Simulated assay, not measured.
Amino acid sequence: MAVRIPVRIVVLVLVVPLRLGWDALVVSGAFLRRALRPLGRALDRFGVQVLVPVARAVVLLAEGLATACWWLLRTLLYRPWVLLWRYLVVPVAVHGVATPAAWLYRTLLAPLGRGLARGTAWAYTRLLTPLGRGTGALLRAVLVRPWIALWRYVAVPVAAGTYRWVLTPVGHGLTRLARSAGKVLGTAFVLLDRGLPLLARGVGRLLRVLLVTPAVFLYRAVLTPLGRFLAVIGRELVDALAVAWRVAGHVSLAVGRVLRLLAHHLIGRPAAWFYRGVCTPVGHLVRDALWRPARQAAAEAGRAVSAALAAARATVSAARRDARRALFGGPREPEPVPGVPGRARNLGGAASRQTVPGAAAESEITP
């Protein structure tokens, strides 16, 4: 208890600001998530509905341009060279170069080659083969046989005598020397085998007195009580952290509620009153006094401009019809059929009804 209460007080003082900061970060993250999620969805829809079709259109345009460029290059550069090679270079090379070359080969080069081959075979059989055999026999007699005799009658006896009279006695002496050295080393190993255990026992007792006994005393008398004390402190510290975290959560919740109430009374309610009492009447006044009259005036101005443009177009059309009539004359009048007045009158009425409006206006104006 003497350790638990101070530790919990200290941990609570240290943990409360951390918990408040953590809760503030959590609330900020939730606010940002709620605020940025619609923006992300809008960007997603914009990318899917605008950027992706634009990218596809750009890709299709690039593919079309690449295909057109490839077709153009193939048509302008590749096909002419292929046709030139196929129908000009190859026939000229075959009929202009290959045929004379074949005739030259059959007429001159083939007989000359056969004559050279026969002469070469005769020279090889009659000249080079006897010359080579004589040269081989001479080289064997001059170079090979003296070395064989030197090896057989000089090198082999000398090597045999050296092995028998020099190397064999030296080897026997070295063998006896190795046996003697082995006996001496065996004796030394036996002595070491008997002396090393005694030396190891002495060193072990010395190490036990100087190192093991102080280490055991230090572990039992110092480290064990210190570890138990630190274990108790650690458990109490962990429990204090858990309790302080829960208490800090309640404190953070209370602080959040207070801040929310303060924000509601200091910012939300004045803002709502300002919106309802000031912005809404001002907006209605602006809408009724300025926006609607301005929109109506703009609509009337647009209608007046449209009427003026329509009158101008009608005037220009009438001027064009008058100019065409002055240059090319009016429409041709139908001739009445003799003997049938009513029919002529009806045909005339139908013809007058089929004329263009300009002609009708001219007939009404002309006396």
Rank of each mutant, 00 (worst) to 15 (best):
A294Y: 01
F274L: 15
A35H: 09
T366F: 11
L185R: 14
P157W: 09
L138A: 07
L309H: 10
R246E: 14
I9D: 08
A310Y: 02
R324N: 05
W147M: 12
R208L: 02
L211D: 06
L18M: 12
R220T: 08
F189C: 04
P214W: 00
A359H: 04
E333L: 13
A298E: 09
R205H: 14
V58G: 11
V243T: 02
R4W: 04
W273C: 11
A57F: 14
A344F: 00
A181T: 09
G161N: 13
L210C: 04
V209R: 15
A55M: 14
T125E: 15
A323Q: 03
V54W: 08
R205L: 14
L285K: 04
V82R: 11
R320F: 04
V7L: 05
L174H: 04
L309N: 08
I9L: 15
V154H: 12
P214C: 00
L88R: 13
A24Y: 00
T75M: 08
G302N: 04
A98L: 14
R343C: 11
V54C: 06
R56K: 11
P130N: 06
V232T: 13
F31E: 15
T125R: 15
R118I: 02
L207Q: 05
L20T: 02
G227P: 04
W103E: 12
R313P: 00
G182H: 10
W122S: 10
V337I: 13
V251M: 01
R194K: 14
L196M: 15
A297L: 12
Q49P: 02
S363M: 13
L128T: 03
A215E: 09
A68C: 12
R295I: 06
R56L: 12
G47H: 07
A318M: 04
R152D: 04
G186M: 02
Q354F: 07
L226T: 02
R126C: 05
A272L: 04
L223H: 03
P225K: 01
R324V: 11
L76S: 11
S252E: 01
L131V: 14
W70P: 00
P6D: 08
G329Q: 01
V203I: 07
Y163Q: 09
H264L: 15
V27P: 00
T67M: 13
A101S: 11
L116N: 08
P336H: 02
W22G: 02
A110P: 02
Y275C: 07
A155R: 08
E335F: 03
S306T: 09
V232H: 06
A360H: 14
H265V: 15
V26I: 13
A263N: 09
P341Y: 05
G283P: 00
L253P: 03
P334W: 00
V50T: 14
V48C: 11
V212K: 01
G119F: 10
R114T: 04
P270A: 01
A2C: 03
L20W: 00
A307L: 09
L14K: 05
V337H: 02
L39N: 03
W85H: 11
R295N: 05
R179C: 03
L108M: 10
F328L: 14
S252P: 00
V212E: 06
R343Y: 14
R114V: 05
R152C: 01
